[in-house]
Amino acid sequence: MKTKTTHNLAFAFLAGGLLLLGSGCSSPKLVRVHPWERATLADAIMDPGRDPLARAASEHVYFSRESASGGRTVNGSGCGCN
């Protein structure tokens, strides 16, 4: 009896695991923010470089710690349009 229960449980876990892997839980279709849902991301407040002073300070930190300068900006808004 005990063996049968263990067997059933093991089967359930195995089937559940396979199901999660094969069902597309890792699929971008299920986990990503869809293009039509990006209104909040497109808001100016979501732009990390919106404050010139903070941006300059951040650039300075990167430059002094990593000798890296520039290349931190991207084109377009946070909505990922186009």
Binding site: R38, A39, A42, G76, S77, C79
Partner: peptide, 10 residues
């Protein structure tokens, strides 16, 4: 056409 007011290319 699918568009939104928050989308610059739109």
């Amino acid at each position: 056409d699918f568009w939104a007011s928050w989308c610059a290319p739109c």
